[in-house]
Structure formats: C-alpha cells, structure tokens
C-alpha cells in the first residue's frame, strides 16, 4: 500500500501510529487490560509499580485498565460527535450558501449567536439543563460544534456556486438538490475532512472538560475527564490524574498532527479560511 504524498511526513506518521494504537487499545481493551476497570480489589492509592503500572485510585481500581477502557468511551463518542456535527453543520451551511436570502440569514445569524458564547459555558448550560450524563454531554457539545462547519461549508459552497459547471447545470434544468449533491458536495469534502480531523481534538477536549466538571460521565465510568476530576481530590497521589490526562493529550495530539499535515496539503487559501473560521 502506498501512502499519498500528504501523509508521508513524520508528523502524519507519528499521529497516525498513535491514533491507530489508541483504536486498537479501544477495540482490544478486554484482552489487554490486566484488571477489571471497575473492580475495587487492589490496595488503595498504590503508586505505579508491578501489577499496577499506572497505580491505583482511591477505590483500589487499576488505573491502567481504566485508562484502556476509557478509550472505548471517549474515542467512539468523539468520532460520533464529529460526524454528527459535520452532517448537521454541513447540511445547514450548504443550505445557507446554496439558497441564500432568508435561509442564509436565519441559519447564519443563529450560528453567530451560538458562536458568541464561550463554548464551554453554553455546553455547560445545556448539559446542566438536560441532566448530567455522557449522552447529554455529547448533545451539549453538538450544540456548540455545528456552527463551525456551517460557516466553512457555506463559504465553500458560495465559492463553488457561481462556477461555470454549477451554473450550466442549473441552466440545463437540474434541480437545486441535484446540483448541490452532484456539483457542489464533491468540491467541499476535502476542506471539511481537514476541519473534521482537527475538530476531533477539540471535541474530545470539550467532552472530557464537561466530564471533568461533573456534567458528563458519572462515576464509576472510566471516562478520562472524570478520572482527572477524581484525581483532584487526591492530588498528592499524582498518578490518579496524570495518566488519564496523558491519554486525552495523546489522542488529541495524534489527530492534530494528522489534521495539520492534511491542511498543509490543501491549497493555502482554503486552509486559511478553515483556520480562521474553525476557532
């Protein structure tokens, strides 16, 4: 198998390997984990050592096993989250850009207002209102994540819409939906893919941040953000918070490495549009 040029770079390779490793860990956690992530049968707050390489928490659970099982929660949820925001934001943005006029105004003003709030405060209100659970935290992040895609898609669609082949398609009497699907979508997928890759990191940070605040995963679930939070109470046992945090860091880093390399492979103008709008 030959990698495309854009991926044959040290950063992309490192990112790819780390991401792949995490996916394997998530899939094979039951086989790899030395202990039951929920079993409280080890000595409490034991520092890292043989038998429990990442130490144990205040309930005597093995942190290594919990971190491994945490991947089964965080990684699929984050991916799902990004896919959903791409779909929702992309669809809304495409409609705004394609139909223009009041459709555009309504959708984009709405996006502006969501944008006006610091993401975590908005997500916090939503999560608190829905009740604390991991699913609701995902919904909350979804609420704040879609506008970025709506903006980028809208901008790209606006750029493509006036191009010759789209206009001629319309002249031939193709329906709006057809030209959106056949002419416009293929042209915006590349940039959206880059944005989504970069956004996996952002989404995971936000999701674990909500769990850290107690608005996401409930104990005893081995969610990384929640595990860091439980480490706050016993912060002199540094390992309780350190390892789940490192897990978050490495996953986010891996996808940022990948996304950053991909962005370089895009043409500079689109890349800049993405960068400015994706904050």
């Amino acid at each position: 198998m030959k990698l495309p040029q854009a991926w044959r770079q040290p950063l992309a390779i490192v990112g790819g390997v780390i991401a792949l490793a995490w996916i394997v860990i998530a899939l094979a956690a039951p086989l790899l984990a030395p202990h039951d992530p929920l079993a409280q049968d080890l000595p409490r707050l034991a520092s890292p050592g043989p038998g429990h390489w990442f130490g144990t928490d205040q309930l005597g659970r093995d942190i290594l096993s919990r971190v491994m099982y945490g991947a089964r929660l965080s990684i699929p949820l984050t991916l799902l989250l990004v896919v959903l925001s791409v779909l929702i934001g992309g669809l809304l943005g495409a409609c705004a850009g394609y139909f223009g006029k009041w459709v555009d105004e309504t959708i984009m003003r709405f996006a502006d207002l969501v944008f006006a709030f610091p993401t975590i405060i908005l997500a916090m209100v939503v999560a608190a209102a829905l009740g604390a659970s991991l699913t609701n935290a995902v919904l909350a992040v979804l609420v704040v994540a879609w506008p970025a895609y709506a903006r980028v898609t809208r901008g790209l669609v606006l750029g493509v819409r006036e191009r010759e082949f789209v206009v001629s398609g319309r002249l031939l009497g193709f329906s709006a939906w057809r030209s959106l699907r056949v002419d416009v979508l293929p042209n915006v997928t590349g940039p959206i893919l880059v944005l989504a890759t970069l956004d996996i990191g952002t989404a995971l940070l936000l999701l674990s941040g909500l769990s850290f605040l107690g608005l996401g995963a409930k104990p005893p679930s081995p969610e990384w953000g929640a595990m860091v939070a439980s480490g706050v109470e016993v912060f002199d046992s540094w390992w309780v918070a350190t390892f789940p945090g490192l897990a978050i860091l490495t996953v986010v880093l891996a996808f940022n490495f990948l996304g950053d390399t991909l962005r370089d492979a895009l043409d500079p103008r689109t890349a800049r549009a993405i960068k400015e709008r994706a904050l």
Partner: peptide, 17 residues
C-alpha cells in the same frame, strides 16, 4: 500543536501539583 492539544484542566492540575 502540543499547546493546542493539552487538556487545560489537566495542565492546571499538573502545574498546581
């Protein structure tokens, strides 16, 4: 890239510790 990947709450805790 590391800077934008570090979970803020974790970094805060580490710095404090």
């Amino acid at each position: 890239l590391i800077g934008i990947s570090v979970p803020t709450f974790w970094l805060a805790l580490m710095a404090f510790y």
